[in-house]
Structures are given as structure tokens and as C-alpha cells.
Simulated assay, not measured.
Amino acid sequence: MRPLILASLMTATALPALAQEVNVYSHRQPELIQPLIDAFTAETGIRVNLAFVDQGMVERLEAEGARSPADVVLTVDVARLGQLKDAGVLQAVENDAFDVIPAELRDDENMWFGLTTRARILYAHKDRVADGEVTTYEDLADEKWRGRICTRTFTNDYNVALTAAYLAHHGEEETVAWLEGVKANLAKRPEGNDRAQVRSIWAGECDVSLGNTYYMGQMVADPEQREWADAVRIEFPTFEDGGTHVNVSGMAMTASSPNQEQALALMEFLVSDEAQRIYAETNHEFPVVEGVDRSELVASWGDFTADDLGLSEISDLRPQALDLIERVNFDG
């Protein structure tokens, strides 16, 4: 591990931290962030130094400590945001500009803030799954789905968050029964990513799969994957006593930020109507700010009612949810 940490430190210290610059560690690929960065710099004159940190963001910030040049982190999934908070590498930000973000989509201690949402939905084969056959997440444990479900591993962050939400709605005993039921209905052992499951539906290996909404946009834009996307439709299941599970991409200010004024300017910009439109359009996600329209493609997927369960609660339940997934050996 030591050479990897040293390499990260060398990369990080190469980032300048000047008065009119802001340094960003991003879990999202640079091409997905660059349109936002360009718009921010054009508006403010503040240059953004962007470092793509695909893995180990918590470890990197911990290793750099107070000397870290990072001002802002951009990442996906409430689990990753929760891990950053738990590691003590973030600081609270009190700012009225963030009141436009729904309370359930930001940390209850103002450590992190949601920027866009994505729904954890079902991709369903257009012919082999009847209209109305998909209803609730609870229904996935029903025997009618025996041998018909595909999914990536359930220890993946996206499925852990879904399980944590199920746990919040139903408690431990019912969550274990649900996990066992869904596992019994799998067509094959969990593997691959969300798009690989859609490929499996297209190939006739299963009929439905769990996935994030934005992957449809990515598949439609990829000539090699467009055929997979054309084979399925998006269905928005709900919890029996709630709505459709959503997760976020989010932002936070680091505890060591050397350019706090510029960092705050960037964070304020990211919740502006302009930035929300750019972010949602580029990433095929849903804006968090009310009144900002979805892209035409995303709007074509239909409307849904998002579950009102706070993501902070989901983040808190994540360790217990992971324990239950491993207890039933879901991925085994």
C-alpha cells in the first residue's frame, strides 16, 4: 500500500493552491465534470484544478492530513459521502444558498450536500415483463420472479444503500427475509455492473435487473450498447410504505481546505440553476433544485415519487445493511 499512498501524495502536492484557484478531488470522471468547471471559471475567473480520484479518496485525504491541497470533494453515493464524514476529513458549511437542496438530500450536520439524484430502478424486458408486473421492491422476493432477476453484487455501494433503505422501512427481520427471497430469485450469481445486467436481459439470461437510471442515458449514447437499451424499459418500483429509492451525487468542503472562499464560491455555483442544468444534462440525472427542468431524455423515462427517507439515515444504517447482506451470503 505504501507506494500507492506515496504516488497519491506526489500527485496531490503537484496541485497548486493559489488565491484565485480551487482544488477539487472528484470521484466522477473529468469529462463528466469539465462542463461545470468551464462554466464556473467563465463566470468567476477562479481556476479549478481537478484531480480524478477513482479509489481511496478517504485514505488519500487522511494521509495528506492538514497539508492536503483539496478544497472540495465531488463524489457519488451517500455511502461515500458518509465515509468521508465519518473519517473526519470534511467540515460543516453553513450557507443559506444550500437551502434550495431538499433536507432529505443533505447531511443533517451540513457536512455534505446532494447535487443531483438518481433512482434505483428496475430495467424490465419490454416483451417478457408485462405492464404492471413490476410494482414494489418488496415484490422482488416473490416466487413469480424465480430465475428472472439479475443484479450486480449486493455488497456494491448502490445495493447497500437500497438495503439500508429497506432496513429503515421494515426492520432487520423482514430485511433478512427479503434478501433471502431476492437471492433465491436470481437467474445467475451477481457480477458485473448495472449495464452488464441490461446486456444479460437483452441476451435472454433474465427478465429484470436493478440499476441506476442514468445508465440508460449512457447506453443510449453508446452505439455498441444501444441495442441493449432498446430491449428494456425503466420501471420505478416503490417501497410499500414509501416512494422510489434515490441516491445522490454530492459535494463537500474538506476540513483542510486552504482556499475556503473560493471553495464556497464553487459550491454555491453548483446549486445555481445554470449548473444544475449542465450537471443533469451531462450525467443524465435529476436536478435537486426545484424548477430546473430535466433533460429531454431523462424526462422521457416518466415521473416518479421519490422516497422521503433522509439519506443521512440511510448512511447511518449502511454498516448494518452490509452485515445483513453478508450474513445471507447474497453474493455467494
Rank of each mutant, 00 (worst) to 15 (best):
1 M>D: 08
1 M>S: 08
3 P>M: 10
4 L>Q: 14
5 I>D: 00
10 M>C: 10
13 T>R: 14
20 Q>D: 15
25 Y>Q: 07
28 R>I: 12
29 Q>D: 13
32 L>Q: 13
33 I>T: 10
39 A>V: 00
41 T>Q: 11
42 A>S: 12
44 T>E: 03
46 I>H: 07
50 L>A: 09
54 D>Y: 12
56 G>F: 06
61 L>E: 02
66 A>S: 11
67 R>C: 06
67 R>I: 03
68 S>G: 02
68 S>H: 00
69 P>A: 07
71 D>W: 09
77 D>N: 13
81 L>G: 05
82 G>F: 08
85 K>A: 15
91 Q>V: 13
92 A>P: 15
93 V>H: 10
93 V>T: 13
93 V>A: 08
93 V>L: 13
95 N>F: 01
99 D>R: 14
101 I>D: 04
102 P>I: 09
104 E>G: 00
105 L>G: 06
107 D>N: 14
108 D>S: 10
114 G>K: 02
117 T>F: 04
118 R>Q: 12
120 R>G: 11
120 R>H: 12
123 Y>S: 11
124 A>H: 00
125 H>N: 14
127 D>A: 14
128 R>Q: 14
129 V>N: 00
130 A>Y: 04
130 A>K: 11
133 E>P: 03
139 D>P: 11
140 L>K: 11
141 A>T: 10
143 E>A: 15
144 K>P: 14
145 W>T: 03
147 G>F: 07
148 R>D: 05
150 C>D: 01
158 Y>S: 15
159 N>A: 13
162 L>I: 11
162 L>N: 11
163 T>A: 03
164 A>S: 02
167 L>M: 00
168 A>I: 08
179 L>E: 09
182 V>W: 05
183 K>F: 08
185 N>K: 01
188 K>N: 08
189 R>K: 15
189 R>P: 02
189 R>S: 12
191 E>R: 15
194 D>I: 07
196 A>Y: 01
196 A>H: 00
201 I>Y: 03
203 A>P: 02
205 E>M: 01
207 D>H: 09
211 G>F: 10
214 Y>I: 06
214 Y>C: 05
226 R>D: 05
227 E>S: 12
230 D>Y: 02
231 A>R: 12
232 V>L: 00
233 R>D: 04
235 E>A: 04
235 E>I: 03
236 F>D: 05
240 E>C: 05
243 G>F: 10
246 V>S: 10
246 V>I: 14
254 T>E: 07
255 A>E: 09
259 N>F: 06
261 E>N: 13
263 A>K: 13
265 A>P: 01
267 M>W: 02
281 E>W: 12
282 T>N: 10
284 H>I: 01
284 H>V: 09
285 E>F: 00
289 V>E: 09
290 E>W: 04
290 E>D: 12
291 G>V: 04
294 R>Q: 15
311 L>K: 04
311 L>Y: 07
312 S>G: 14
313 E>M: 00
313 E>D: 09
313 E>V: 06
314 I>W: 05
316 D>C: 04
326 E>N: 14
327 R>Q: 15
328 V>H: 08
329 N>Y: 09
